[in-house]
């Protein structure tokens, strides 16, 4: 045994003590509260997405002629294909929900404030990456909504002044949806965006580790007890439980609400009711409320405000007496998002 251990030691000159030291960072006590685990949830779901995504890619074909048929093969013919596809779809939904909740938690607890501005911005990039993954993902099924969603998305980009046409052409590989468009979405969905997401995630977590998790103090905590607990194994057990809970939840969702297939994309017929995935309902409703260019630019403006919020918030706190202004603005923002989403969800057109 020791000979083999020695051999490993020689080949990989890393001592177990160092690894333990590196990973076993003390975790603040507030992390025992479940809603603080929302950062780990999307990361775990992302791993599931990578695994199921790789499995789906084994059978998926990127040609507009056979994409729909290959998804149908996965759904109807391949063993457990329906299950893996449904898990992929539901994990995507949960991932976006978890990212949004995580961001709300960070926002309302003010965890983005100095010195964590950069990590907030990286978090915003992660949010955009996740949403774009969702968008490209449902384009790949090549059903009616995939096609028209992509077409509408591209034409939305087109209405941005100056660079719109350029962005649209870049997105569709042409003026309109064509035979080269789908492989673009596939490469974005299966290679570019996941790699970007992993890179951003690494930086995101590294910065957390460098700065330490924001510590919160709750009134009911016993002052005499230590302020932290160890990551390993205690917090890891928590994460394992969370992971298994997600797996069970996903299996249940996949069996009760399996991913279905709409009619195949038909460039000649726009469906009567066309709706994007639920996480784009906000933008979709906004676009219906206001004329094109204004709607696009105002959406862009809101995203810009979100990116720079740590600095804006700092200025507000510095220059005015409204120290908790961010909470109220946040509540208004969240209510607006919920209202627009519900509105879009409840009406047919």
């Amino acid at each position: 045994m020791s000979a083999i251990a020695q051999w490993f030691q020689d080949c990989l000159p890393v001592s177990p003590e160092v690894i333990r030291e590196m990973t076993n960072e003390p975790v603040p006590n507030h992390m025992k509260r479940w809603w603080f685990a929302l950062g780990g949830t999307p990361a775990y779901l992302f791993v599931i997405q990578i695994i199921t995504g790789i499995l789906l890619a084994f059978y998926y074909e990127t040609s507009t002629g056979s994409a729909y048929a290959s998804v149908r093969y996965i759904t109807e013919e391949a063993a457990f294909g329906w299950y893996l596809r449904s898990v992929h779809k539901w994990a995507a939904t949960l991932m976006i929900a978890a990212v949004v909740l995580h961001q709300m938690r960070v926002y309302f607890t003010g965890a983005y404030r100095k010195p964590r501005e950069i990590n907030w911005i990286i978090g915003m990039f992660l949010l955009l990456c996740t949403l774009t993954l969702g968008f490209t993902g449902y384009s790949l099924v090549f059903e009616q909504l995939s096609f028209w969603g992509a077409t509408v998305g591209a034409n939305m980009a087109d209405s941005v002044p100056v660079i719109g046409g350029f962005v649209k052409n870049l997105m569709l590989a042409g003026e309109t949806y064509n035979s080269r468009t789908l492989s673009r979405f596939f490469v974005l969905h299966a290679a570019v965006l996941p790699v970007a997401l992993i890179g951003l995630l690494v930086v995101h977590i590294m910065i957390i580790r460098l700065q330490g998790v924001t510590e919160f103090k709750f009134k009911d905590e016993d002052e005499s007890k230590p302020k932290t607990f160890s990551f390993f194994p205690d917090h890891m057990y928590t994460e394992l439980m969370l992971g298994l809970f997600l797996m069970i939840l996903l299996s249940a969702l996949a069996t009760i609400f399996p991913a279905s297939m709409g009619p195949e994309a038909d460039p000649l017929t726009t469906p009567e009711v066309i709706k994007p995935e639920w996480f784009f309902y906000v933008v979709f409703r906004w676009l219906k409320l206001f004329p094109g260019t204004f709607a696009i630019l105002s959406t862009g403006f809101v995203v810009f405000i979100m990116f720079t919020w740590p600095f804006i918030d700092a200025q507000i706190r510095k220059r005015t007496r409204f120290q908790e202004a961010s909470v109220w603005i946040g509540i208004v923002g969240v209510l607006a998002i919920i209202a627009l989403t519900m509105w879009e969800a409840l009406v047919a057109h």
Binding site: Y83, A254, T255
Partner: peptide, 10 residues
């Protein structure tokens, strides 16, 4: 175990 059971159901 519950996860296993859910996969058995699958």
């Amino acid at each position: 175990g519950l996860f296993l059971v859910s996969l058995v159901l699958v």
